[in-house]
Design a protein around this nucleic acid. Sequence first.
DNA 1: CCAGACGTTGTT
DNA 2: GTCTGG
DNA 3: CCAGACGTTGTT
DNA 4: GTCTGG
Length: 208
Amino acid sequence: MGQWSDLLEDWPEDAELGYNIAPTQMIPAFTAEHGLAMRWGIVPPWSKEPSTKYATFNARSESVADKPAFRHAWNKSQTCLIPAVGYYEWQGTKGNKQPFFIRPENEEPLVMAGLWEYWRQNEQSLYSCTIITQASSGKLEDLHSRMPLILEFDQAEQWLNDGVSIFEQLLTNQNIERLKFYPVDKDVNRSTHEGEHLIEPLAAGESA
DNA sequence: CCAGACGTTGTT
DNA sequence: GTCTGG
DNA sequence: CCAGACGTTGTT
DNA sequence: GTCTGG
């Protein structure tokens, strides 16, 4: 955790942990107040169901403020942090894709900017969240056209405390030089894995 | 006007 | 809830 | 991992 | 029930 231990305290014990977490799973998300297990895939408060038929696991930075599904959370500055060890991207053609793992060079968490939402109806209620994406930059351009909005520690504090007013400056101050990526085993999603080897290079010198 | 969408990425 | 498409 | 499809012929 | 897609 390093310097992140204060911001990411109050870890939600009911959040799911694992490798290659997918949309709809309950993931740990942190607001300025606390950590909560939230559904990955924001559910707007007007939704008839605690799920959506359309994809809300990512929100494009270019349009997040305008989209009906995100606007309520945006207007209320319901910002959150979503931590991970790293994330995957796949390269290659269908059926023969090579996964890469992207993470900070140091051992600290990769912290992504998100928005959260609260949905309730009758006796049901649900916290949910989305991860904001943007065009890739720097070395990540080689890997994939899009990437999450990744926050430095100071930026993460601002995102929680100041809300969406500082959004534009976060976008223009992306420092991805502290990240590295490397190919990993294709069995990345098998639940039987202990996982430890997944964040190690597949073979020395094979990194793109 | 009413019905239907409301979203993003592109692997396993 | 609010916008869009027919 | 979970949610959603799972199918074919050929009109409006 | 089982496969596929995200």
